[in-house]
């Protein structure tokens, strides 16, 4: 699992504010490895289990979207940049890649979830943006030259 991601940790204060920066290869395995690394780092800063789980889920959804869409069909795995800042009350994320832009240069709406009764009509995908929108706020997307820039804030529960 070497060189799948690189972690730049110049300073490691014992508590908030805490920042991290990770560059990873755009592949499902590298996303999984990076998530494990970031979770372990954040756990050292006394984030609750619930907060760690929510952060991991939002990061998994955003990073896998880059893997599956921005770099879809790319001849070789691209890179994803992740910068996170933990304030104690929230985690701000800045995610960059140089894959394809979002369709229409705008964020997918993420359909609101509704109750389903009949299994045959259930969707098997499209849950990702719905989850991101439920668990984060201040979502913003911009295309800067060849780069996609996604920023968001994950509010964290006390304790």
């Amino acid at each position: 699992m070497s060189a799948l991601y690189r972690h730049n940790d110049a300073v490691k204060p014992a508590s908030a504010p805490y920042g991290f920066e990770v560059t990873l290869e755009a592949s499902p395995d590298a996303v999984c490895a990076a998530l494990g690394h970031i979770r372990a780092e954040l756990a050292r800063h006394r984030l609750s289990k619930e907060n760690l789980e929510v952060i991991e889920l939002v990061m998994a959804e955003t990073l896998n979207n880059v893997v599956e869409h921005a770099y879809a069909g790319a001849p070789q795995a691209g890179l994803i940049g992740v910068r996170g800042t933990y304030s104690g009350e929230d985690l701000r994320l800045r995610i960059t890649d140089i894959g394809k832009p979002m369709p229409g240069f705008t964020l997918p709406a993420g359909k609101p979830f509704k109750r389903h009764e009949i299994a045959d009509v259930l969707p098997e995908g499209g849950f990702g943006w719905g989850l991101i929108r439920l668990l984060s706020c201040n979502l913003a997307y911009s295309r800067m030259g060849d780069m996609n820039l996604l920023t968001l804030r994950i509010p964290l529960a006390a304790g």
């Binding site: 896998n64 849950f127 989850l131």
Partner: peptide, 16 residues
């Protein structure tokens, strides 16, 4: 201990 939207889709697919 962890499932994401892709995993959820796979469980839904199992139901079908």
């Amino acid at each position: 201990s962890f499932i994401d939207s892709s995993g959820l889709g796979a469980v839904v697919a199992t139901l079908k």
